[in-house]
Design a protein around this nucleic acid. Structure first.
Lengths: 116, 116
DNA sequence: TTATTTTATGAACAATTGTTCATATGTAGA
DNA sequence: TCTACATATGAACAATTGTTCATAAAATAA
């Protein structure tokens, strides 16, 4: 991580770009969102919840995964505030908590549709 | 991956959601985009290139990383067709190749700005 | 209370991903 | 040609991430 021995070709351009960059903290936050969506099971869960809420075991059926595996992934999505849950008796229903993520996913669906 | 012993709470809802889901192939494609953006160095590179093209060693300065490390990450972004490159003598200039990714990143910037 | 159902969690293990270092490639100039 | 410079690549290693299994917790009904 030593910058001193690195030569820079165009210092002016680098300086300008540096000023336009988000803070490291915000870059990490953006990375965290992308990380949350960069696992097939988690993305499938979010896609499933785009339409309607589902309970854990129905999500497990949709994802072809064990209840436990799905529960772990739901916890990650919950921690990221991408999904929320409500309990009804023994059953825990999960749904989307974040509108920005919906737009994000729509955008990537477009991308896949046009460029795939 | 055996579905037979999994009970389903609301079969009708599950069936409807299943029909609305993108194909597994397209889910993988979307995941690949998110994966590409889910490393701080790679995201910073893409953010830097949003404004203007840069050569490898200037990107290395911006990211506080070795030329080699940056080159590896650039290869991943190149494989994903997120960035493109042009050679000018000894210097290789990289720039953004994909408009959808720009929108995707703008969306996540909004998210961080509003909900951070 | 006990048994059953649904979901959650911890810990061990497996798989993926990123980093580093040495070396190779391609370009330009002497 | 030889040398220097900018970038790329392979392989070993380190770190992160996901999966599995056993078990725990919460709610309900008997």
């Amino acid at each position: 991580m030593d910058i001193c021995d690195v030569r820079c070709i165009d210092e002016e351009k680098v300086r300008k770009t540096q000023q336009s960059l988000p803070s490291d903290e915000n870059i990490i936050r953006m990375v965290d969102i992308f990380k949350a969506l960069s696992d097939p099971t988690r993305l499938k869960i979010v896609l499933a919840l785009l339409n309607r809420e589902h309970c854990v075991c129905d999500i497990a059926v949709l994802c072809n995964q064990s209840d436990s595996a799905v529960s772990h992934q739901l916890r990650i999505l919950r921690t990221m505030k991408i999904v929320k849950n409500r309990r009804q008796g023994k059953i825990m229903y999960y749904s989307i908590n974040d509108g920005h993520v919906v737009s994000l996913i729509q955008m990537s669906l477009d991308h896949v549709a046009h460029c795939g």
